[in-house]
Design a protein around this nucleic acid. Structure first.
Lengths: 212, 212
DNA sequence: CCTGTATGAATGAAAG
DNA sequence: CTTTCATTCATACAGG
């Protein structure tokens, strides 16, 4: 940062103790140390986030944070508005997706039971939930598959529904959006939750001191 | 990574060019460089993840990212635009409304296909869009019908009473959809996608070379 | 710029 | 299994 004295000395190297070595001024060394420190800190925080996301998340109960929130209400002796609909925790979802991918495409009765028990470790869940999940997953997966052909504007298709008012006005660009439902393999994607508020200032502009 | 000779020389420092400096062997320097490089890489990737997350903000729901755009936009070096959502052009809307009114309560798959193709003449659209549109149209149409009153919404209701006041206005029901989304909220949960396969082994055990 | 509302999309559950 | 319904999330857009 400072010590702008006059150490434009020998940044090259020299023989000390009979060995050729690079030398650094204290400033450089300090800068380096700081640099590493910064990275270490950032990495630690990010890793923290990652862990929090990957591992926990369910201890906080179902992730219905917005309605069934505060346990406070529960303490008031009032009836806790139970959740209406099950929602898999990120962790559960991860497991489910994995199982789904594994190809054991046929979730047998027993299989369902096992999965349910396993997922029960990460949050409230029932066999029905699991069953439905697979049911839906399969169905939707299939449908998306059948949506490869996207209209490419066929001029000859002129049905009578061409009712258009002259006052028609093309407000905005109605034509750019990624349409295709599912990429070939969405399994490459993982989902995680970040709850650490400390990473906010992360901008990607981590200054790095080039060594040499 | 060698020179395992005997350079336990002067790791301390020395006077070179009239300035006291720390010295390092090439091995140390190399190690250091690697260390920083590792951090830099990891941080970059993590930052990437974080950015991806910040952009496609998702609060509570765990939207399985099946259509969230991909690296496409990234390569152009352009801003990673958030996912766009389809919006029917006035013309398309007109047609959709007309079809809906026609009473064909259940747009079959084939019907959907036809409609999609037809509407494709007036702008980008997919079968899914059409499907969703009818789905929503039906659901909302029904709801408004069944909503003679407007609820007063008591946060501590015991049942999901849909009590509603005779609000003539055709607005939606229960105006109690909290959107606890604040930039300062510590509950900021988002889901992010890890597309970089290199981060896998993230365990928090990032070896760090202490600079003493 | 912030807030509320309309509406496209995602998805658990249930009906067919 | 396939289709439909219900509920919720997220975002585009209009007002203040």
């Amino acid at each position: 940062m400072e010590a702008e004295h006059h150490h434009q000395t020998s940044n090259a190297g020299g023989i000390i103790g009979g060995l050729y070595v690079k030398v650094m001024t204290d400033d450089q060394m300090e800068l380096l140390r700081q640099q590493i420190s910064v990275y270490a800190t950032i990495c630690q925080q990010l890793v923290e986030m990652h862990k929090a996301v990957t591992i926990q998340q369910d201890l906080a109960g179902l992730r219905l944070g917005n309605l069934y929130c505060d346990p406070l209400m529960a303490c008031s002796g009032h009836k806790i508005t139970a959740r209406q609909r099950w929602t898999p925790t990120p962790l559960q979802l991860q497991v489910l997706e994995r199982i789904f991918d594994e190809g054991n495409g046929t979730p047998s009765k027993q299989k369902i039971k096992d999965i349910t028990i396993e997922l029960g470790q990460h949050g409230q869940i029932s066999e029905t939930n699991v069953y439905n999940w697979f049911q839906n997953r399969r169905a939707r997966s299939k449908r998306k598959q059948l949506t490869p052909a996207l209209n490419v504007v066929e001029p000859e298709v002129e049905t009578e529904v061409e009712v258009e008012s002259p006052k028609e006005k093309k407000t905005r660009a109605e034509g750019f959006q990624v349409q295709p439902y599912e990429k070939s393999s969405p399994h490459r994607i993982k989902d995680m939750y970040i709850q650490s508020p400390d990473i906010e200032p992360l901008t990607g502009n981590i200054p790095i001191m080039m060594l040499k």
